[in-house]
Each structure stands twice: as C-alpha cells, then as structure tokens.
Amino acid sequence: MRERLTVAKAYSSDDRSDLVRISAIVRDRKAFPRWSVAKLTCNGISKRVVVLGHDEVNDKIIMLDFDQREDFRLKVGEEEEFSLDRVGPCGTVLYLLQARDPMLRLPAIISVISFLVGVLPIGVDLLKILFGGFPE
C-alpha cells in the first residue's frame, strides 16, 4: 500500500504500544487485517508496527503516537506519503524483539533464549556425529 495520508494524534490508549491506526478502506483489509504486523515507511525511515483501523470520519488519516511521529520526523496535520508492506513470521519475531512495550519485548527475548538453549544440545550432538564420531 502506498498512500498520501494526513498525520493525526493517536488515541491515548494507543500510546507506547507501536499501534498505528489506518482506515481499513485505505490499508486493504485483506492484505493487512486487524492486529497484523507490517513495515511502515515514511521519509526513508521504516518501522515495524501493529496495524489497526479507526472510526474517524476522514479515511485519509494515519494515527501515530508522539514517539512514532518523532521517529518519522512528522508533525500533526502534515500530509506525507506512507508505504505499508507485509512482514512474514521472521518480521513478526523481529517486531516482538524490538517492541517499545516491555510486556511484549521481554517475553519474546525469553522465548528466543529458551529456544536457543533447547536447540544447542542438538547442534552439539550433530557436530559430534559429523566430525568426531561417536564417543566410546
């Protein structure tokens, strides 16, 4: 999705959560359903965000919180071109690892560490089999 949108303030409940609100009409509801993770690009800057809709009268607005407006170097009322791209499972994991909200970021970090600790013994055993044979 590429669209010129006017920047608006996010709802106060959306602050600090990486939520971006774009009308379902503008964002293509099938490509970007509610709560999907996407890569938002503006002014040459890209961020992974969670996409939701809004019920404002004007469909051509994008609702960003203060930190997101600062990240993209935008002001309320400005009209800019935004690009929204899908991310796959790896992009979703990267989003969770870099999320602003610690309630998302910390469990993701613990999960990745736990996964790596679980996979490590398998890797060691494979190396033994491939390069060292079986111990006697």
Results as ranks from 00 to 15, higher is better:
Glu79Asp: 14
Met63His: 07
Val20Leu: 14
Ser12Pro: 01
Ala38Arg: 11
Leu126Lys: 11
Asp18Met: 07
Val37Ala: 01
Leu120Val: 08
Gly88Pro: 05
Lys9Pro: 13
Arg73His: 10
Ala8Gly: 11
Lys128Thr: 04
Glu79Met: 06
Ile109Gln: 14
Ile110Asp: 14
Gly77Ser: 06
Lys30Ser: 15
Leu104Ile: 13
Val112Ser: 01
Arg16Ser: 07
Val124Trp: 03
Asp14Cys: 12
Asp125Gly: 06
Ser36Lys: 10
Gly133Leu: 05
Asp67Glu: 10
Leu127Ala: 11
Asp65Ala: 12
Glu79Gly: 06
Lys75His: 15
Gly77Asn: 08
Arg73Leu: 08
Leu94His: 05
Val93Ser: 01
Leu5Ala: 05
Val76Cys: 07
Ser46Arg: 00
Lys75Val: 04
Phe66Met: 09
Arg16Pro: 02
Leu126Thr: 07
Phe115Thr: 09
Glu136Gly: 01
Arg105Glu: 02
Asp55Cys: 02
Ser17Ile: 02
Leu5Arg: 04
Ser12Ala: 11
Arg105Asn: 05
Val37Ile: 12
Val112Trp: 13
Asp28Thr: 08
Glu136Phe: 03
Phe32Val: 12
Val50Gly: 01
Glu81Gln: 15
Ile122Trp: 06
Leu127Gly: 04
Glu81Ser: 14
Gly77Pro: 03
Phe131Gln: 05
Asp59Thr: 08
Cys42Phe: 00
Cys90Asp: 10
Leu84Asn: 10
Val37Phe: 01
Leu106Arg: 07
Arg73Glu: 09
Met63Pro: 00
Glu81His: 05
Pro135Trp: 08
Ile122Leu: 12
Ala31Val: 14
Arg48Val: 10
Leu19Ile: 15
Glu80Cys: 13
Met103Ile: 08
Arg73Pro: 01
Val51Glu: 02
Ile22Cys: 08
Arg21Gln: 13
Leu97Tyr: 11
Val51Leu: 15
Val93Gln: 00
Ser114Met: 12
Tyr95His: 08
Leu120Glu: 09
Leu106Gln: 12
Arg48Tyr: 13
Phe32Met: 11
Glu79Arg: 06
Asp55Pro: 01
Phe32Lys: 12
Leu130Pro: 03
Lys128Ile: 00
Cys42Ser: 11
Ser17Asn: 10
Pro89Gly: 15
Ala10Phe: 10
Asp18Glu: 09
Pro89Cys: 04
Ile22Trp: 03
Leu126Gln: 07
Asp15Asn: 07
Leu104Asn: 08
Leu19Phe: 08
Val93Phe: 02
Arg4Ser: 13
Leu106Thr: 10
Pro33Leu: 07
Pro135Val: 01
Val119Cys: 09
Val7Ile: 15
Leu97Met: 14
Gly132Met: 09
Arg27Ala: 00
Tyr95Met: 08
Asp85Asn: 12
